[in-house]
Design a protein around this nucleic acid. Structure first.
Length: 269
DNA sequence: ATGGCTCCATACTGGAGA
């Protein structure tokens, strides 16, 4: 079972790139962020033609998240992160895909920091951490994936000293990520590639992609039940070099088993 | 340190992104 996450930066503006990537890599499950489209403007027909069932939570101009699945309709669990009825941003959607709970998230950027946007980011992070604890307590195999807007360590940014004041790298932000993972979540990319330089985002300025001046901010956090099924993980880096690409690249993991019913999975010889 | 690029909105410019 292959699960991917991709901050598309405009699902309609990037549709040719998205469809080409789906066709070439055929992930079983895809989490999308930054749809930048209202609910009724999601390109449902094109996604269906590509072989995917989808649920999504759109929003005019900004934000917006979706979950795509090749193996039947995702069973939606929620489309709002609990904890703040006043929060109007479409930044979270969650579904069961087979035996796996998939949480798709777009954590706030938080710049400029300090300030109200940074406060919102940290509050959102606290809500995510509370929810993640309940997910772990449920014992359901779970993955929380998406654009976390956090570089967890200095290894995850091309020039750490330039980013220490930035909302994506400030001590409070890194501490929040650490608090979350300390509940028992596994950072899938780092688990399999502990020392590699791996980025998932390169900005549009100053030839950042060409210079590999990137950030690792899109993550997969796995519950213990899924961490033990982790087989492979990587970044489809070349997609960032395509014409009209998002500033993020897709990130993916592969789990053993189909995700449909672990009790009747075929033997692996 | 700054500005560079690209999206969307209802538009010939501005906000947001990271």
């Amino acid at each position: 079972m292959k699960i991917a996450t991709y901050n598309v930066n405009g699902v309609n503006g990037r549709l040719p790139v998205l469809l080409r990537w789906l066709k070439e890599t055929t992930p079983d499950v895809v989490c999308l962020q930054e749809l930048k489209a209202p609910q009724e403007k999601f390109p449902e027909a094109a996604i269906q033609d590509a072989g995917y069932h989808a649920i999504w939570h759109g929003q005019k101009s900004w934000n917006g998240v979706a979950i795509l699945s090749r193996s039947g309709q995702p069973k939606e669990v929620r489309r709002v992160l609990p904890g703040d009825p006043e929060d109007s941003h479409s930044r979270y959607i969650e579904a069961m895909i087979g035996d796996v709970l998939v949480g798709c998230l777009y954590l706030p950027n938080g710049n400029p920091a300090p300030g109200p946007k940074f406060d919102y980011k940290l509050r959102w992070f606290e809500r995510l951490t509370l929810h993640a604890k309940e997910v772990l307590a449920s014992g359901i195999p779970a993955v929380l994936t998406g654009d976390y807007n956090v570089m967890p360590t200095e290894k995850d940014v091309y020039k750490p000293e330039r980013w220490v004041e930035d909302a994506l790298f400030r001590p409070e932000t890194r501490a929040a990520f650490k608090t979350l993972t300390a509940q028992g979540w596994t950072d899938a990319i780092r688990k399999l590639h502990p020392d590699e330089t791996i980025y998932t985002f390169w900005d549009y300025f100053r030839n950042a992609y060409g210079r590999n001046a990137g950030l690792r901010i899109d993550h997969f956090l796995l519950s213990p039940q899924l961490a033990s099924r982790l087989k492979a993980a990587g970044v489809d880096r070349e997609v960032r070099g395509w014409e009209k690409s998002s500033d993020h690249a897709p990130v993916w993991i592969e789990l053993t088993g189909t995700g449909r019913n672990p009790l009747i999975s075929p033997p692996s010889h």
